[in-house]
Nucleic acid binder design. Structure first.
Length: 511
RNA sequence: GGCGGCGUAGCUAAGGUGGUUAGAGCACACGGCUCAUAAUCGUGGUGUCGCGGGUUCGACUCCCGCCGCCGCUACCA
């Protein structure tokens, strides 16, 4: 059985979960669901990053221990993912013992391979920020936030010999053309590598909220350095339950463009240094941007103006989980930035979900109820709809496989359109009950069955509802895709339940 | 400053080792249908493919310049 391992970044607990996090997580979730549908042994990992000075500070400010603070803030992410039907298999927290163990094993390997050494870090330090700035990022020697003069500070740190990996990284990129997608992001990473790599300091003595350095108990690892290793923690690297051989290196990291460098440069170099093959694929996505569009009343009432101010649950409350998932997956092509707007969600909802999908299910249900005694008839072995269905199956399969939810959904909606057109041309509402009518309705029901199968990775909840409304047992994912996707599996035994509209139209008032 | 990207119909945008009428969706208009959530089906675009040059038999697609917007430029989750 094929293995499929996909990860999101672990989100920093000091952030509140927002639409940007949801965008990435929903995309990863859809891919995980797609691979489960294919019958792959799938592991979908997400989690929270909980170390670092800022977390310790926030805990202090709130009068609780870092542990309590992260328990509280990490939980918010799980709640957001519950609201979005995120089917993660594992939720990792960097403060878990298993993570400490893996990080220490991993970095000990790097250390023993000679890629970690001690040196003095010199930098411009802002006392107020408790943070370092580079010459370039400082405001002419002053802190860009506080405006005070930065002081020259020194700290003895352990360094990672990143500079040793410029050439190995270039070779790795050359030998693995699909390592980073899309290609523009791959080029960005490569040009960074070609621009020369400097060693990086990976430990801190000034703080204690981190993973201790096993060979030097005065130090803890710098957050980014322990965070990346979470992908290995989840598969047991360096521990008794080590299953790295099963899940690695054929794995997929879905990451936002802002953390490209860490995942496409640091991380593969770290793996090489530890004697491990780097991850096989990093899929970089762009950002959703909020234009000047009007926000909904709910959103406006919460003072939302930036994407990062919009809580996912605000959206699922207003539109429903399937609508939001659909919008996030359908509206933009992964890898490019996209627009996020209330109007956009409403438009997608009304046109694609209410008018096309919801209404199709409703009209078919009604006709079957009145003319087929409420029992769905069997499809014909051949039909013009079968041609459209097979095209949709092929298109969706191909798109899901290349990490293109937008196109998978486009292909799926092609079948919805073809089915609506098929009904127009056959006009079953004018036909007398009988074989001809039954054939038409059977074909339409079969198309609906296939639509709910193809759309399941994106909108699992409503697909399961449709599945049961057309009288099928279980859920769309119960049968392996290659079998389920074949035309003609709908049988003339199913009772149809009309039910309430799946997506009641949203009235748009012009203001 | 350096590197890179973007600019295509009212809106969102696809595409292309240069080559028949530049493909879509939304919105809009007209027509059909009335099973359906005022849904659906059909038809409808004289779009300077940012501006100006160049290469070419031919460029939206290649080259140069310009304008506008945006990223990255290392230890900031």
């Amino acid at each position: 059985m094929a293995h499929y391992y996909i990860t999101t970044p672990i989100y920093y607990v000091n952030d509140a979960p927002h639409v940007g996090h949801a965008y990435c997580t929903v995309n990863a979730d859809a891919m995980a669901r797609w691979h489960r549908l294919l019958g792959d042994d799938t592991k979908f990992l997400t989690g929270t990053d909980e170390h670092g000075q800022k977390v310790a500070d926030a805990a202090l400010k709130n009068g609780v221990s870092p542990r309590e603070w992260t328990d509280r803030t990490s939980r918010r992410f799980r709640e957001a993912w519950d609201a979005l039907d995120i089917s993660y298999d594992d939720f990792i927290r960097t403060t878990e013992p298993r993570h400490y163990e893996t990080v220490q094993k991993f970095l000990t390997a790097v250390y023993e391979n000679g890629y970690i050494y001690k040196d003095v870090y010199q930098g411009l330090y802002c006392v107020s920020c408790e943070d370092y700035y580079t010459r370039e990022s400082s405001d002419d020697g002053r802190c860009p936030i506080h405006g005070r003069v930065l002081s020259e500070m020194q700290e003895e740190n352990w360094f990672f010999r990143l500079s040793a990996f410029a050439e190995p990284l270039e070779r790795y990129y050359a030998e693995h053309p699909g390592f980073v997608t899309p290609e523009t992001k791959r080029n960005e990473a490569l040009s960074f590598i070609r621009g020369g790599l400097r060693d990086i300091s990976i430990t801190r003595t000034s703080i204690s909220w981190g993973v201790p350095v096993p060979w030097d108990d005065q130090h803890v690892f710098y957050v980014w350095y322990d965070a990346l290793i979470n992908y290995l923690t989840a598969i047991g690297y360096g521990r008794e339950d080590d299953r790295t051989g099963e899940w690695w290196p054929t794995s997929h990291h879905l990451v936002g463009k802002e953390i490209l460098r860490f995942h496409c440069v640091w991380w593969p170099a770290m793996c090489m240094a530890a004697g491990l093959e780097p991850v096989s694929h990093v899929q970089v996505h762009g950002w959703l941007l909020v234009g000047g569009q009007k926000l909904s009343k709910t959103m406006a009432a919460e003072g939302a103006v930036k994407l990062t101010d919009i809580a996912p649950v605000t959206l699922t409350d207003e539109f429903g989980v399937d609508a939001i998932r659909y919008y996030l997956l359908r509206e933009t092509s992964l890898g490019n930035d996209g627009d996020f707007s209330h109007e956009g969600i409403t438009a997608r909802y009304n046109t694609d979900l209410a008018n096309n999908l919801g209404n199709l299910v409703a009209r078919v249900s009604t006709i079957v109820a009145s003319k087929c005694a409420g029992r769905g008839p069997a499809p014909e072995p051949t039909s013009e709809l079968r041609v459209a269905a097979e095209a949709a199956v092929a298109g969706a399969r191909e798109a899901w496989n290349r990490f293109a939810p937008q196109h998978a959904l486009e292909a799926t909606w092609g079948l919805i359109g073809a089915t609506n057109a098929y009904l127009e041309s056959t006009a079953p509402w004018k036909m007398e009950p009988g074989d001809a009518l039954e054939a038409v309705m059977g074909n339409a029901l079969e198309a609906i069955r296939l639509v709910s199968l193809l759309a399941t990775p994106a909108i699992p909840r409503v697909c399961a509802t449709i599945w049961s409304r057309i009288g099928l047992d279980g859920a769309p994912g119960d049968e392996v895709f290659d079998t389920a996707a074949q035309w003609g599996r709908y049988r003339a035994v199913h009772e149809i339940h009309k039910g309430e509209p799946l997506f009641p139209r949203i009235k748009v008032s012009d203001e």
